[in-house]
Design a protein around this nucleic acid. Structure first.
Length: 619
RNA sequence: GCGCCUGUAGCUCAGUUGGAUAGAGCGUUGGUUUCCGGUACCAAAGGCCGGGGGUUCGAAUCCCUCCAGGCGUACCA
């Protein structure tokens, strides 16, 4: 191939980055994932009971995934914790659901776990023994920050591509959703026992750089390129893009500049490298504020040469719809929505680089799951690309098996009125500015509520609230629906904001602190049974964490976890109110209640951890 | 035009691998408390699940169709 070689300095710079990324990802792969068994004892017992009825070693789906919460207004004289609908099991066992439900209730071995188990038509209603739940609470406290982990992803590698900002531009809030959702999914995968690789696929190549370099030449030739900051670069880029629409000469200039860059022009490459380094520094600052660390940050530029070679091979490797034009070197994927791989001028575009990236991951990281956290508007694009990748064998793993490619889309980020964010109207902007704004508001609120609080402490709390509010607001609804950005709502107490959950957490914290200082409260063994229905329910719900995390992981849906945490907040409110501790004469009961507060804190800490929302003992 | 997504309480949203009388929060109305921390808790009212048709023991969920909104629709990423 007559592709020109790039200057050594450029290669060396890039090579350093690549090797570091690969090494880091490799280290991550080798580190064993922390895991824990998923099922609870009573679930295992229930599963065994049903298996016994099946009579043989018949494969049954997990009981846990079939359990539902009984409807609040079911006509029952008692309160079950769970209901097991027998429909599916009955189908599998070729039995009548009503009869099967009745049969399950007859299993005497279940009496140890359930205080009541009763069939209601085709449903088996179950109420757990207090002792079972109190044991569970003990387990929560023992496992601490590892509580909620499970093992269902054990031995598997999940690569999550997310954030992927564009170099030479400020980190805008348009990249917020990918960043927030991606990090949360990465954490969920990790908690579910997967080995996780976080991959930041930087937008650092393409004709956009030709345009940027051309813009520099047009509008700011007197300035050294490297002296321009990203705001300035963005300004000239936006201006160039506007004027390019009506001025074909500018469009040509942009293409020429990219051609020179691609051919290895040392001056242009130096400019490009300066922009890359500057952006990396800026991105790092943003990621630090959000507590995000990538294992690998390899930009698109790295895959450009591989992409060119790969495109030429696609038809012979079995890509049915790839069309190559021998004369112009143009290439595209034909189909309902054609996707260009290489332009008529012979430059690979992002689609070709994306394919080369898949090949690279196939050989370097060999992941079982590859998750692309990119806006929903690119859904059809990814479908097309993935299909080609499968056709030409890019998803077949060297060790056998397949690399599962999956696009995780998400809806738009809208302003408070529900309008699309716009740079021109000033409703869109830099992510850091938005965080600063939230930070300041949170600080004012915190100091107003706590006039005596140390200012430094208030500052650090406000920082956490700001980041937490930002993330919570994004993750609280289903990914595919759009999200509104309304600062008032995000920082309000009530309304299901992050403040609600941080508030209940800090309330438990301060209560436990008070108990520690209270001479009348002494550590003892907890009571053997709960004193209120709320305590019972709270304990049962707290014990669902790992199942919820598993579900959220499988469905790639952090909002499932958020919904669960919101339920807990409600239960906690009632519990806190009903079950006072100070002044309670029964020391064992007081201890049980204190344990519930500790367990609550543990579960909230794990749950918020999976969402990447920072915790604070005070608020 | 074609493709994908969305439409559920006044508002913001859960629930969509079919399952018991469709659930939360905010707001509204009424009540209790002002006691371990932004007071909190309890209760009520509020729904032709966008319209229509179909599938079956059973549909917000599956299928068809129509309506409304959003996004995408090749040489940008």
């Amino acid at each position: 191939m007559n592709q020109p070689l790039r200057p050594d300095g450029y290669k060396a710079m890039l090579a350093g980055q690549i090797e570091k990324s690969i090494a880091q990802a490799e280290a991550r792969r080798r580190a064993p994932a922390k895991t824990a068994p998923l099922g609870l004892e009573w679930q295992v017992a229930l599963e065994k009971g049903v298996a016994k009825l099946a009579g043989s070693d018949g494969e049954l789906p997990g009981i846990a995934s079939m359990l539902v919460h009984p409807p609040k207004n079911a006509k029952l004289s008692w309160l079950p914790d769970y209901a097991l609908p027998a429909f599916e099991l009955a189908r599998l066992l070729k039995q009548n659901p009503m009869a099967l439900a009745a049969e399950i209730t007859n299993d005497v071995s279940l009496a140890k776990h359930f205080s009541k188990i009763e069939a209601a038509g085709p449903y088996v209603n179950l109420r757990l023994q207090d002792a079972e739940l109190i044991d569970g609470v003990k387990t929560i406290l023992k496992q601490g920050e590892n509580y909620g982990r499970s093992n269902f992803g054990e031995g598997k590698v999940a690569l999550v591509e997310f954030s992927s900002p564009n170099v030479a531009k400020p980190f805008g809030i348009n990249h917020l959703r990918s960043t927030v959702i991606g990090e949360s999914l990465a954490r969920l995968f990790g908690f579910s026992g997967f080995t996780v690789i976080r991959d930041n696929h930087l937008g650092d190549w393409g004709t956009q750089f030709g345009n940027l370099l051309a813009a520099h030449q047009q509008y700011a030739p007197e300035r050294d390129f490297a002296s321009l900051d990203t705001d300035e670069l963005n300004a000239i880029y936006v201006r160039f893009s506007q004027e390019k629409k009506t001025n074909p000469a500018l469009a040509r200039l942009g293409q020429e500049m990219f051609a020179k860059l691609d051919a290895g022009d040392p001056v242009l490459l130096a400019s490009w490298a300066a922009a890359l380094n500057m952006s990396l520094k800026e991105f790092k600052a943003v990621y630090e504020r959000l507590s995000i660390e990538f294992d690998t940050q390899i930009g698109e530029s790295y895959f450009d040469k591989d992409a060119a070679a790969l495109v030429d091979q696609l038809p012979e490797r079995g890509a049915k719809n790839v069309v190559l034009d021998k004369k112009t070197k143009a290439a595209y994927i034909d189909g309902e929505h054609p996707v260009v791989l290489r332009t008529q001028d012979g430059y690979c575009v992002y689609a070709a680089r994306d394919l080369a990236t898949i090949a690279f991951r196939q050989q370097t990281y060999t992941p079982d799951e590859v998750i692309y956290v990119v806006g929903e508007e690119q859904a059809s694009y990814f479908r097309t690309i993935f299909e080609v990748a499968r056709e030409v064998g890019l998803t077949t793993l060297p060790q056998g098996g397949h690399m599962h490619l999956e696009h995780i889309g998400f809806g738009l980020l809208l302003d408070r009125e529900g309008k699309k964010l716009s740079t021109r109207k000033g409703t869109s902007g830099k992510l850091e500015d938005v965080i600063d704004q939230l930070d300041e508001r949170a600080y004012q609120e915190t100091t107003a509520r706590n006039p005596e609080m140390d200012k430094g402490l208030a500052r650090s709390i406000a920082k956490k609230i700001a980041v937490g509010a930002l993330i919570w607001n994004d993750l609280r609804t289903d990914r595919v629906s759009s999200v509104r950005f309304d600062i008032d709502r995000m920082l309000a107490l009530g309304g299901g904001s992050v403040i609600d959950i941080l508030y209940t957490y800090s309330r438990s914290s301060s209560l436990l602190q008070k108990l520690a200082d209270d001479p009348e409260f002494t550590q003892t063994t907890p009571a053997k049974e709960f004193s209120t229905e709320t305590e019972h329910q709270l304990a049962a719900r707290l014990l669902e964490l790992s199942q919820v995390i598993r579900q959220a992981t499988i469905e790639r849906a952090p909002h499932i976890l958020v919904g669960y945490l919101q339920d807990l907040v409600q239960l906690h409110g009632r519990f806190y109110e009903e079950s006072r501790i100070q002044g309670v004469s029964d020391a064992h009961l007081a201890q049980l209640r204190a344990d519930l507060h500790r367990a609550y804190k543990t579960v909230i800490a794990s749950g918020l951890g999976c969402l990447n929302i920072p915790l604070t003992e005070r608020i």
